[in-house]
Design a protein around this nucleic acid. Structure first.
Length: 114
DNA sequence: ATGTTGACACCGG
DNA sequence: TCCGGTGCCAACA
């Protein structure tokens, strides 16, 4: 594999239950790295390219990168519109131009939809 | 091995 | 409060 880091990041993102979101910093910490920058880099390759077959641990299906946002709750410029629609579909409420991290920030343990 | 880049985070003015 | 610069870590050429 290219790097276990990328695999772990994808796995962590995939572990995010629907209706919840995580910040790049949180994902980085979950995987055990401080390369918060690398998180977005991995997602760009796995989510921005359809060539993620067999990369996202499987199986499955495409990494829910739309559940990953910045510490501010805001999203990237290119994804702002995209993520907003996807998150809204998951039931996540938006506060203006940001996500309500206070209520949708995944704990990283409560896999059971609250 | 070195330099540059990157879907970020944090601190200072 | 808003804007800017700096720092961290990993991957790529």
């Amino acid at each position: 594999m290219s790097s276990d880091l990328a695999q772990r990041i994808l796995g962590a993102v995939e572990s995010i239950p629907p209706g919840f979101v995580l910040t790049y910093g949180d994902v980085a910490e979950l995987v055990g790295t401080r390369a918060v920058r690398h998180v977005g880099r991995v997602l760009s390759v796995s989510g921005g390219t359809p060539a993620n077959e067999g990369v996202a641990g499987g199986g499955g299906g495409t990494v829910p990168w739309h559940r990953v946002l910045r510490s501010d709750g805001s999203l990237a410029e290119h994804l702002y519109t995209e993520q907003r629609q996807l998150l809204l579909g998951e039931g996540v409420r938006f506060i203006g131009d940001k996500v309500d991290l206070e209520n949708y920030r995944w704990d990283g343990v409560s896999t059971t939809t609250a």
